[in-house]
Design a protein around this nucleic acid. Structure first.
Lengths: 248, 248
DNA sequence: CAAGGAACTTGATATGGATCAAGCCCAATC
DNA sequence: GATTGGGCTTGATCCATATCAAGTTCCTTG
């Protein structure tokens, strides 16, 4: 369920705004495009745009024109039901692509809110389609990215439909840990960008339950919690929580 | 969250195997392709293949080569966690496309099981990509279909994360009702193809809860249940269950 | 047509997480 | 540096749904 390990961008600073930029790894790096193709792809990517913490990259109901590649930062995506309940559908970090849900109706169906100061590259969708008609590798890659989103969503359904609170939290922490590791950050010590309430919304739990479960993990020596700083002290125990066979 | 109403195919029987076939409406009908393009699309669609009730169209772990358009019948898609828990991720009926999750890794990540005798058309994925490079309308349409799957999944997350058992069941019944209506079947009287356990798995409930809740709806006069035959007797009441504002 | 088993219903009880409530801590703001 | 409010923790209680259990119906298969 986790994408293959991808290397951190070590290219010189002056190249960082190009398509080889690490922030666009999901869209570009694994492609193996020719230099010319790279340049074409570069051509459609607009200047990075900063989004302050708390600001919306887009909101449900707004017309759809572009996908967004996160260059830097951290976002939550959430849907609001007719009667006002929020469901966080995902947390997204650098290198990931947002907005694919909007393709179906040409209208955004989620809110995307920055949870820290962030930067995104806008990718006009018409351009993506046009270019991917010319570059089969890009086409294939784009399809894989969309498909990966579907697979991820299925994983969340499994979590919401089958798992107990402790398992959900353990899965959540391990997932974050892996994604930070891929980006070259510590996998055992990281800062949560979201509130307990947002974690709860994502995991189908109330914020009190999130808080209690984190405390319990701490008591058991699995993690250390200091506000939003999390240190994983016994990753294997967390993994064991997940693998435990639940009879039936 | 529901796709626009689409008309039932009234074309003569001898044309039914072509791309205008009603069973492929999701893939073909709304496109407005030229006759030549239609023919090309026809060319990649293989002979319909029958799948008996209980048989698998594909299983998790099998190599991915094709998407499948359901011509006729009813399928469930489900993922199995490492420790053996099943989560039904969706129920699929005629005109829908299955297998898109497999694009990401070239391996199927779900099981697709026929819940009644069914027929599918195989669509080799390489051909789809090639053709959609030539026919922008097809490309756009395929992207919309994938995106719609993502939006659908977000809806399920909202359901699993936020709703009570009664709301989940009501949403489920109304969703089925709409989808039957689109296909020209009765929206108020239909046959469930799945067991209570499968409904429960999809909705994150135990089969007893599904059974009890259906009985309750019957007692309240919202529906009539006879085995797997469901009759919606008061659709508005079911809708009201969903719209009810849950304070907070 | 009979037998067996899967699917379903219904009741009784248990429990995980929600809800309600109170107080604390920290970060932002003046 | 004090103040304020949002975010968080922890305890007590409640409730929706799971779990356990028993019996029924229906469908399949011989």
């Amino acid at each position: 369920m986790i994408s293959p390990i991808q290397v951190r961008d070590m290219s010189p600073r002056h190249l960082r705004n190009s398509c080889t930029n690490c922030s666009l790894r999901e869209l570009c790096l694994p492609l193996g495009l020719s230099p010319e193709e790279m340049q074409e792809l570069d051509g459609i990517i607009t200047q990075a745009r900063p989004i302050k913490r708390g600001e919306a990259l887009y909101r449900a109901g707004e017309p759809f024109r572009s996908l967004y590649a996160i260059r830097l930062g951290f976002f939550k995506a959430s849907v609001i039901s007719e009667d006002g309940r929020e469901q966080v559908t995902g947390f997204h970090m650098s290198g990931e692509l947002m907005g694919m849900d909007a393709i179906s109706t040409d209208v955004h169906t989620c809110d995307a809110i920055a949870l820290e100061d962030s930067e995104v590259c806008e990718l006009p969708f018409n351009d993506i389609e046009e270019l991917s008609r010319e570059i089969p590798l890009l086409q294939r890659h784009f399809h894989k990215v969309m498909s990966r989103e579907i697979v991820r969503d299925h994983g969340v359904m499994l979590l919401l439909g089958n798992m107990k609170a402790e398992e959900r939290l353990a899965a959540f922490l391990l997932n974050l840990s892996q994604r930070f590791a891929i980006r070259g950050y510590s996998s055992s010590s990281f800062h949560l960008r979201m509130t307990r309430e947002e974690i709860g919304s994502y995991l189908g739990l109330k914020l009190e339950t999130v808080s209690r479960t984190l405390s319990k993990f701490q008591d058991q020596g699995f993690i250390k919690v200091q506000n939003r700083l999390i240190e994983l002290e016994n990753i294997d125990s967390l993994k064991k929580l997940l693998n435990t066979c639940h009879d039936e």
